[in-house]
Amino acid sequence: MRIDIITVLPELLKSPFEASILKRAIEKKLVEVHFHNLRDYSTGNYKQVDDYQFGGGAGMVLMVEPIDKCISQLQQEREYDEIIYMTPDGATLSQGTANEMSLKKNLIILCGHYKGVDQRVRDMFVTREISIGDYVLSGGELAAAVFCDAIIRLLPGVLNDETSALTDTFQDNLLAPPVYTRPSEYKGIKVPEILLSGDFPKIEKWREEQALERTKKRRPDLL
């Protein structure tokens, strides 16, 4: 997989990809992540990428021309499966979307900023708009990092145990059941006996029941 991220703040984005699972995935060449500074595609001494919006109103808007130049250049080099715009008014990111996107080969992620991007960018290029929640961030960079983490961890070979991702919360529209590790008793609180029994069919049944019960209590909307 190759991911090209277009941003006005590449330095804000790079650190998540320099540690932990994302770093290992890049080092193992399971994914390529490239950052493109939008100012490199602007003209003039000030490398302007934003301007006031027509019709008045507070806040600046990312201009269409630099984004057009960047995306058009990338499209000349390869074919992209999706051009994704990170925006609060996009479809809320779900595990199902992450699963779907993890199967793609080439992605462009456009990070919004200020009051967003010129609508013509969305009309001309964007194939999917994604939000990570009903709130507003200063820009789409942190949202892009969250999105990348969600999909990269699903790529074969990224996790040491590939079955781990299949049992994550939301994979079957249920929350994950409670989990325990050593010691088996701590400050008088014991691990459920079933988990120490070695009877794996019964353990799986217990986990399914716990997952269903937890989902009913905490996220009944998933059911």
Rank of each mutant, 00 (worst) to 15 (best):
L110C: 06
E193Q: 14
D81F: 10
E193H: 11
G96Y: 05
P192G: 13
A144M: 10
A143I: 07
A98M: 02
N37Y: 09
D149S: 08
E162A: 13
M60C: 13
L12P: 01
E185M: 08
K47T: 07
F170T: 00
S131P: 02
T92M: 09
E213L: 12
L13P: 00
R153C: 04
D4A: 11
M101S: 07
V117E: 01
S15W: 05
G96E: 11
I83G: 01
P66D: 08
P156G: 10
L155D: 12
D81A: 12
V8K: 05
E79W: 06
F170A: 02
L38D: 05
R120N: 11
S138Y: 13
K29S: 15
F170S: 00
K14L: 12
I189V: 13
Y180I: 12
E11W: 03
I21P: 01
K14C: 09
R39Y: 08
E141R: 05
L22I: 00
D68Q: 10
L22A: 01
G57D: 03
M1V: 14
L195G: 02
F35V: 14
L22C: 00
M101V: 13
F54D: 05
P178H: 06
D221C: 03
F170V: 02
T7K: 02
S164M: 14
V31H: 01
P88N: 05
Y52A: 15
I109Y: 02
T43K: 12
E65S: 07
T97Y: 06
D50F: 06
S197P: 07
H36L: 12
I6Q: 09
Y85D: 01
L93S: 10
E65H: 07
V49G: 04
R153P: 04
Q73Y: 05
A91Q: 14
D123F: 07
P178K: 09
C70E: 04
Q53I: 14
T181A: 12
R122P: 05
K205E: 15
N173M: 11
A150P: 01
I26Y: 01
I151R: 01
R153Q: 08
S102Y: 11
N160W: 07
D4C: 05
L166Y: 14
E162I: 10
